[in-house]
Design a protein around this nucleic acid. Structure first.
Length: 948
DNA sequence: GCCGTCACG
DNA sequence: GACGTACGTGACGGCG
């Protein structure tokens, strides 16, 4: 059959010279059936206005076709076809009558759309290809092989794993729904083997959806391990007797025939006849009349408008080579003297042209201050290949306000022009931009009207690979991986009082510093990026990390409104009351002392007054923390209470009232925090400058601070928080039946725990009993110890020990979970979350027992805290788009670990509460299906205190 | 620049 | 038997 295709349909490729810019044929093969289903499920059930004909899948399909034809510049197809399944019966059913036997019929409202989709395809001037007796996958395989062998390039538009066996040089897949490229490394991440061995792995693990039997009890992990060990399936089956594990060996021997059959079922047939010659698939302009009539018939008005607009403007195609895969570069010494300072437009344009050629570049922005939400741009650096980098200054000036034109050595391209030249490249989908801590650059450049995309972030790549092992700042990564110490910022800008803003740094030094940052970033990328797929962490990076910088940049830039007058009044009130406490304390002692000095307090309490019951800190000083002072106060002493009261106010004033006012940006009148994405071991964010994740709430006095966080006029603040998320995750991960049931039934979880432990009915339970159970539940999540629980509850240690014992008797699954985490961390020195995030805990190998025990407790806590962090990250990533789709104007402002804070128009408060709750509760899906419900409580009010 | 303390989840 | 003791953060003032 293949002869026929070869002889009758000679490939155009051979006739056409290969251009410098890439292969002459770039064939896009759209997996029609799979796309229809995804469009159907992803989109709301749209219908034709006039008669209610279901049209959602058709609309999604047309949008994608349009996008393929118009959006992509250098990657645009020269040839394009949509491939459909033709009939249910194929040659595979002759091999195995149960093949795809359990497929449910398509949804009723989808059935009429199948024919319309074919009509749509033709209306766009694109070929529809199908062949009786063959699946679309086989046709895709045949076209792919032909074009690839003739030197062309193929992009398969599908995310179907069955097609991954086709990936290889010049054949990639494109998941348009997720906007992901699937190349060799993504295949390796999915199957644990390269594309050439995918069928072997699939043959072993089978596929329940297609009803491919495989070998019982063997999943992807085991299958890929076996294939990697033996090389290929035939060798494995031939040498199955050598397998050590009894059960596995027997399975492979007993089911050898079934495994071979499975391989035949999943193996795609490259010799499938081609119904249309490749030449006929060339992309052609759609006939405007035909397309217009189609869009009119199905009332696809918004698409018709977009097509009209696109037709009016120029295509803007920019020639470039396809993006090269990042490769390991030979390490070479970093030489800062070769960097270029770009100071005229022509040179800048040539650098931009080289960026297009390179396909992957690194960049960095330099600013005149630290806060990305307000800092001004000083310049941008670009690195095109290791050692080849430049700096484009835009805002450098003499310190005393000298005009640029007056100083010859400060001549720079005007800001507007730099932006005009850089913007198209920085926004071009065919140029991948790598940054170190991309959130910063995104935030700065977005204020200059540039939306940088696509972006990768070396800091986040490092974080995914090695969280918990070390920091992820550039200097540290450079020292670690490149053996190179980048020029310290201090060396170019000075330090302490003599430090100057970067805009006052002389251009030569600025170029060395800035271009080196881009150069180092590119080298780090080349070094670290390939590890993601190899180590199975690409999905974690792509789903939990890479999408977040733009989301956080928008939150930081939005900021939150804070009432300065309210805070100043509060500050004055606190000052006056502190003065009273101070006078009282000094009267009690009989002489002045500094209430802010723990050392002096220790001397007073345990020296002069000779109180008993003190403890020492790690450095041998008297401890005077609130636990100590509380217990002294309980003994009946007066001074400790005064000190505690003074301290509370001192803390609130020093850390909150005064500094929050100081943090209000003069430009925006709001407070802009900065979120660190890679500072915690567990995947949580942290907030700095100022920290808005530790605003007081637990005491009456503290809550007053929260009242200062307010919504802009006409708006409300909405606080939405996950209820008991870590305990719910414990119930799921530890598979604790009683806990799961309690959460499903919406019971009071602490009361339920108390009831189970102490055999007390929930009705009329004394609050002290519930309080103790609550402390235990929290303690469990932290890796409980009798000492810690005793401390927390102020009860004797043996009593606390007895509680813990009872708890484990009532919930044996929890002990099992804890033991499992301990074993895992001892073996691997890391644990993982249910989303695959890896949390390293190197201290488990420490010499000191104390450190090791610490590590064990961290290992118990990390999968829970980490999974909660993963979940809220997923919610945050989806939130902006979800709000937009719902037509809501709300902006996400803050994140506090299990809480999101929004600012929304007052009249949209209810709708926003409903939507954000929905997005947050569904956040684990579809990656993880929790066996307990997630519950989110959302409230709107004029200030944060009342919204929470 | 470290330490003790304390704000949050 | 000793050891240090609930997980994860960031910011402040004191002190050397």
């Amino acid at each position: 059959m293949s002869d026929l295709a070869d002889s009758e349909a000679p490939l155009a490729v051979t006739d056409r010279p290969l251009t410098q810019d890439g292969p002459a044929v770039r064939l896009y093969l759209v997996d029609g059936s799979s796309f229809i289903f995804r469009a159907y499920h992803a989109l709301p059930p749209l219908t034709r206005k006039s008669d209610g004909l279901p049209i959602g899948a058709v609309s999604g399909f047309c949008n994608m076709l349009f996008k393929l034809l118009r959006d992509m510049n250098s990657d645009a197809p020269t040839h394009l076809a949509v491939i459909f399944d033709h009939s249910e019966e194929t040659f595979r059913n002759k091999l195995y009558d149960q093949y795809k036997a359990h497929r449910p019929p398509p949804p009723e409202d989808l059935i009429p759309q199948f024919a319309v989709v074919r009509e749509a395809t033709r209306a766009f001037g694109v070929s529809c290809i199908e062949l009786p007796g063959y699946e679309a996958d086989d046709l895709i395989a045949a076209y792919s092989c032909k074009v690839r062998d003739a030197g062309g390039e193929v992009v398969i538009v599908s995310s179907d794993k069955d097609l991954m066996q086709l990936v290889g040089p010049n054949v990639s897949m494109l998941d348009t729904m997720k906007n992901l490229r699937i190349g060799r490394e993504q295949v390796i991440e999915k199957f644990g083997v390269g594309p050439e061995r995918v069928v072997d792995v699939q043959a072993l693990c089978g596929d329940s959806v297609d009803n491919v039997p495989g070998a019982p009890g063997i999943g992807v992990k085991t299958a890929s391990a076996l294939i990697n060990e033996y090389g290929d399936l035939d060798t494995l089956l031939a040498r199955a007797g050598e397998i050590k594990q009894d059960k596995r060996r027997q399975t492979l021997i007993d089911f050898a025939d079934q495994i071979r059959l499975s391989r035949a079922l999943v193996q795609l047939d490259c010799d499938t006849p081609l119904p249309e010659p490749i030449d006929d698939l060339a992309v052609r302009e759609p006939d405007k009349a035909v397309l217009g009539a189609f869009l009119e018939t199905y009332e696809l008005r918004s698409l018709a408008r977009r097509i009209g607009e696109a037709g009016a403007s120029s295509s803007g195609a920019i020639p470039s080579t396809p993006r090269p895969a990042p490769a390991e570069v030979p390490e070479s010494a970093i030489d800062v003297s070769g960097y270029v300072c770009v100071r005229d437009a022509t040179t800048l344009e040539s650098w931009v042209a080289r960026c297009y050629e390179a396909g992957t570049i690194a960049f960095d922005t330099e600013t005149d201050a630290l806060g990305s939400a307000t800092a001004g741009l000083c310049g941008v650096s670009l690195a095109i290949s290791p050692g080849e980098a430049c700096y484009i200054p835009v805002g450098h000036c003499e310190k005393e306000g000298l005009q640029l034109e007056e100083a010859a050595d400060l001549v720079q391209i005007p800001l507007d022009q730099v932006i005009a030249i850089l913007k198209p490249m920085l926004e071009d989908p065919t140029v991948l931009k790598v940054a170190q801590n991309a959130k910063y650059d995104i935030a700065v450049l977005s204020r200059y009207g540039i939306d940088v995309a696509p972006i990768e972030d070396t800091m986040l790549i490092s974080y995914v690979l090695e969280a918990g092992m070390h920091g992820h700042g550039m200097d540290e990564l450079s020292a670690l991986w490149l053996g190179h110490q980048p020029i310290p910022f201090k060396q170019v800008a000075g330090s302490g009082k003599g430090q100057v803003s970067f805009k006052h740094v002389e251009l030569g030094k600025a170029t060395e510093y800035a271009a080196e940052d881009a150069d180092v970033t590119l080298r780090l990328y080349n070094r670290l990026r390939p590890r993601l797929a190899r180590e199975g962490l690409l999905t974690v990076y792509e789903t939990l990390e890479r999408p977040l910088p733009p989301v956080l940049a928008a939150m930081e830039n939005a900021g939150v409104k804070v009432d300065p007058i309210f805070l100043r009044n509060l500050s004055n009130e606190f000052s006056m009351r502190m003065a009273d406490f101070e006078a009282k304390a000094q009267a009690l002692v009989g002489h002045p002392f500094n209430l802010g000095s723990p050392k002096q307090i220790g001397d007073v309490l345990f020296g002069e007054m000779a109180l008993t019951g003190g403890k020492k800190t790690a450095t041998g000083q008297w401890a005077t923390d609130s636990d100590v002072l509380e217990s002294l106060a309980a003994q009946g002493h007066e001074l400790p209470r005064v000190l505690l009261d003074w301290r509370q106010l001192s803390k609130l004033k020093g850390t909150y009232t005064d500094n929050l006012v100081a943090a209000i940006s003069p430009d925006t009148g709001r407070v802009h925090t900065s979120y660190a994405l890679a500072s915690t071991t567990t995947g949580r964010l942290s907030s700095t400058d100022p920290n808005l994740q530790n605003i007081p709430i637990r005491t009456e006095e503290g809550r007053k601070i929260r009242k200062a966080f307010i919504a802009d006029a006409g708006n409300v603040l909405i606080s939405a928080d996950y209820s008991q998320i870590e305990l719910r995750l414990l119930a799921h991960v530890g598979d604790i039946e009683q806990l799961k049931r309690a959460f499903r039934e919406g019971l009071d979880i602490h009361a339920m725990t108390a009831s189970e432990m102490f055999n007390t009915p929930i009705e009329g339970m004394p609050s002290e009993i519930r309080r103790r159970a609550k402390a235990i539940n929290f303690g469990i999540v932290y890796g409980i110890s009798a000492f810690g629980l005793a401390n927390q509850l102020s009860i004797p240690q043996d009593e606390a020990g007895a509680y813990i014992k009872t708890y484990f008797e009532r919930f044996p699954g929890i002990r099992a979970y804890m033991d499992q985490m301990r074993a895992q961390v001892r073996e691997h020195a890391y644990v993982t979350t249910i989303f695959g995030r890896k949390i390293n805990i190197p201290d488990i190998r420490a010499k000191a027992v104390g450190h090791r025990q610490f590590a064990e407790r961290a290992a118990i806590n990390a999968p829970l805290q980490g999974a909660a962090a993963d979940i809220i990250r997923r919610a945050m990533i989806r939130m902006p788009e979800a709000l937009k789709r719902a037509g809501l104007k709300a902006r996400m402002l803050l994140q506090v670990h299990d809480e999101l804070i929004f600012e929304a128009p007052a009249e949209e408060a209810e709708a926003t509460c409903r939507l954000v709750s929905k997005v947050m509760e569904a956040a684990p899906e579809p990656a993880v299906s929790l066996s307990v419900p997630l519950v989110v409580e959302a409230r709107a009010a004029s200030n944060w205190d009342e919204a929470h």
